[in-house]
């Protein structure tokens, strides 16, 4: 029972990341009709927002390390620590959660620049052309990050207070041995709150209502005198922020490197296809479903029956869904069915 519960939690935090990326992809596809292959790169840039913010906070002065006598050794002492002592140390410790404040405007700007500078020129083009151009953009973004930060993963730690494990067994009245990393629980809660926020924004605001109407019938909304295009540009920015925040908060789980976006992009496209192209609910449901399935498939009991199943389970499910229900779990009839 404990083993199943742990796998469920593991699936939920993975699923949280898949769902957040897939949500952004679906928003872009649903509003602008654009298949955005640069969305994984946006997730990666979000992670590097956390890295950059941490590096800014830890700009250091070199001081001589007196404990080394063999040669002249130096250690880095961050200016924040020199100036503010314990307060400075605490700010550095909280670099990742604080980086959200940094990531929101940065990602919004990147989103607007991408949409206005490139994506809008491809609204009327075929999906194949959109895929080609956004994939090219993803490679450019990757290489830019690689040239600035190098090719190696950069460890980015969570605040010390949540670096260990939560005694969830004790908290939930289960086995006292049952623990789960705090940050992964926080990530799951964070992804749920972002998903909830996006849905609430689309459902309970006038802006959201117009966007949903536009997703349903863009021409009619335009005939009502509403500048739907401007709203869609904002939605593109919103999708970029969602993916960016997903990346920033994921940095302590997976050390960011320039290529991480590609790994997530492929999985997220599978999630979108399984959920149904254009269906926000489908993207979220499929994200969590596939995360959980992947996690259960990694159990030794399952792998002893089908070796290597954990590596292919997501693609296997995608194949079955496409064969049985081409529009995905919650997709609209006629959308990407042929």
């Amino acid at each position: 029972m404990d083993a199943l519960f742990i796998q469920l939690l593991n699936g939920l935090d993975k699923g949280g990341a898949y769902a957040l990326i897939a949500l952004g992809l679906t928003l872009t596809f649903g509003t602008l009709g654009v298949v955005n292959f640069a969305h994984g790169a946006i997730f990666m840039i979000g992670a590097f927002c956390a890295v950059s913010f941490q590096q800014i906070l830890t700009i250091s002065k070199k001081v001589k390390d007196e404990s080394i006598t063999f040669f002249d050794a130096f250690k880095d002492q961050p200016y924040l620590e020199i100036w503010w002592g314990d307060t400075g140390r605490a700010i550095i410790d909280y670099a990742v959660p604080l980086s959200i404040l940094f990531a929101i405007p940065v990602m919004l700007l990147i989103g607007f620049a991408m949409e206005r500078g490139l994506i809008r020129h491809f609204y009327k083009r075929t999906h194949a052309e959109q895929i080609l151009v956004t994939f090219g953009l993803a490679i450019i973004l990757q290489e830019v990050v690689r040239s600035i930060f190098g090719a190696n993963p950069i460890p980015t730690s969570a605040p010390d207070i949540v670096a260990g494990s939560a005694p969830i067994g004790v908290l939930l009245g289960m086995s006292p041995d049952l623990v789960y990393p705090w940050w992964r629980l926080i990530y799951f809660a964070f992804s749920m709150s972002i998903i909830g926020g996006v849905f609430a924004f689309l459902k309970y605001t006038t802006f959201g209502m117009v966007v949903r109407a536009g997703m349903h019938d863009r021409d009619t909304v335009g005939l009502l005198g509403i500048n739907i295009q401007r709203r869609f540009t904002i939605v593109f920015g919103l999708a970029t922020v969602v993916a960016g925040l997903a990346g920033a908060m994921y940095a302590p789980i997976l050390s960011p490197d320039y290529h991480m976006g590609m790994d997530f992009l492929i999985l997220s496209f599978v999630v979108v296809v399984v959920g149904g192209m254009g269906s926000l609910e489908g993207a979220v449901a499929a994200g969590f479903l596939l995360g959980i399935m992947q996690s259960f498939a990694s159990m030794n009991e399952i792998k002893s029956i089908i070796p290597g199943i954990d590596q292919i389970i997501i693609y296997l499910i995608a194949v079955v869904i496409i064969l049985v229900r081409p529009r995905g779990l919650m997709g609209k009839r006629g959308v990407m069915e042929d």
Binding site: D2, A3, Q7, K14, D177, S255, M260, S295
Partner: peptide, 13 residues
């Protein structure tokens, strides 16, 4: 990168 799917099965092995 993320080894969680390999680590969780150890917990009850």
């Amino acid at each position: 990168g993320d080894f969680s799917q390999y680590i969780t099965p150890i917990l009850n092995s």
